[in-house]
Amino acid sequence: MFKNKTDKMENKDKNQVHEEFIDKQADSAEIAESMESIKETLSDSSESAEVESGLELLKSELNEANNKYIRLYAEFDNFRRRTTKERVDLLQTAGRDVIISLLPILDDFDRALKAIEGQENLDPAMEGMKLIANKMKGTLTQKGLKEMDAMGQVFESDLHEAITQIPAPSEDMKGKVVDVLEKGYLLNDKVIRFAKVVVGA
């Protein structure tokens, strides 16, 4: 539906640009004919100064008409590029809101799995939870979701949100992520949630 509307808009603007271009060509042709007429008059008339002035005026009008057409064409070309980019972005992030709403469920799965790990006689429950979590993660991965690997990485403000800083456990961990409090996610290589991390100082 969005594509059809955009295509109609583009076709309409193309037709409008084409019609304005035809009008400008017609105007240019009329101005050129007027110039030729003035040239002929110039050879027969004693009022050459006035005719020369009229010729200069027509030349400036012709230049103005050509400049208007060039600006109009440039504006249309920019519009076409912008709508093409917006269409691509819309297709890539069409399910963004749905996926964002599922992220807390992924967090709950992770917490439940951690809580179960230390207990006895929960093997069947553990296996079931793992199957559900893996199935859900696999489905989201197919939709373009990617989990950030933040642990041990150099802190980047474009990917991470620093919750706090603690003394680094080793010299090489300074300025790096020493703990991840909440995972970050990318959708088609665009950040949809920053990773909440602890940074070594």
Rank of each mutant, 00 (worst) to 15 (best):
E56D: 08
A94C: 08
N78S: 13
L90P: 00
S45C: 06
S46T: 14
K39C: 06
L57E: 13
A94V: 10
S48A: 13
Q119G: 03
A74N: 10
S43I: 07
L55F: 10
E117C: 00
E75Y: 09
F79D: 03
V51P: 02
T83P: 07
S48V: 13
L55G: 07
D44P: 03
N67S: 15
L106Q: 01
S48F: 14
I116K: 01
A94E: 07
Y73T: 14
L122C: 05
E47Q: 13
E86K: 10
L91Y: 13
L131P: 02
K68F: 09
I116M: 04
D77R: 14
V88A: 12
L42I: 08
L122V: 03
Y73R: 13
E120M: 01
R71L: 14
T41F: 11
E86F: 14
G118K: 00
S45A: 05
I38C: 02
R96T: 12
F109R: 03
D108N: 11
L42V: 05
R96W: 06
D108L: 12
D110Y: 06
L113W: 07
L91K: 13
F76C: 04
E40F: 10
K68I: 09
E40H: 10
P104R: 10
A112E: 01
A65K: 07
V98Y: 06
L103H: 03
E52L: 08
I70E: 15
Y73G: 09
D123K: 02
